[in-house]
Amino acid sequence: MMALADLQIPGALVRLVVALAALAAFVGVNGMLLVYLERKVAGHIQRRPGPFEVGPHGILQAVADALKLVGKQLVTPNGADWLLFWGAPVVSFMPVFLLFLPIEFGPGLYGLDVNLGLLLILAFAGLNVVALCMAGWGSNNKWALLGAARAVAQSVAYEIPLLLAVLAIAAMAGTLHLGEIVAKQGSWPWQWNVALQPVAFFIYFVCSVAETNRAPFDLPEAESELTAGFHTEYPGMGFGLFFLAEYAEMIVVSAVGATLFLGGWKGPLVDGVWWFLFKIYAWLLVMMWIRWTYPRVRFDQILNLCWKWLIPLALLNLLATFVALAVV
């Protein structure tokens, strides 16, 4: 603390404020872009053009959607708990910026230089399920409550293999600092962690889809059985915040995945932030591809997959990692 006393506080503070402003812009712009992309990808996978009316090739559709959401009246449902109901979208969206802070987008391009960056992300990502609980309980709606119940069971279960897979990488790198994990990997694909830890990569990918509640694991909202699950009752920007938080979290899991397994901002020929963005978008496109290809699984199937297959697999992988580390 003494070292921070004089000029360093403003320096770090300026960096933090600039980073937060830049991240707010990044999240907003990419959220809009992803909404458009998602609808276009869905359209083309289902052999239709997707949004086409607003602007050339429907490129302004997301803007129109956002304006519509902002313009809607905010209605609190009868019998709903005001504090829980309106607190939930805020709790869901607020930690998003914190999740982006330790991520290194390019050489030296990060918001907060923190040794425990990976742990910071994992710790604050857990707040999202608290938000889902608040939304589900506060809505005074049976669909919402069922959605929340599913969200709890699913996210608590999938957090375990996710942590175990991440732990294998952290043990190999010997650090939780995201920048250092990138620094330990090379520029070519065979020098990335995915070449050494394919099982952990697979587990992380499955868990990242499950933790962001994306199809085929979108049980908490499951529109064909639960209307819209936990956010059934949310009007206008209440829903908008949940939506934005979900897309921001998709970017976070892909960014962390790209950092841990795919060499972060390093890539063949020229290292730089473009490789990182390319990897994030490739990851997101695969997630969309999966969403529009596979049907939703049943709830017992999703839990069985986690407890009976992923957790033992992750434990074995961790054990093998430790043995390999001890031998080499």
Binding site: M1, V114, L119, A123, G126, W137, L145, A149, S155
Partner: peptide, 27 residues
Amino acid sequence: MQAPFVALMQLLIYVGAVSVLIFFAIM
């Protein structure tokens, strides 16, 4: 107290898992 590891573990385990399980029990 300069123990960020304990602080983050507190959030990860108690907020992210234990509280959520308490919510499950309430439900």
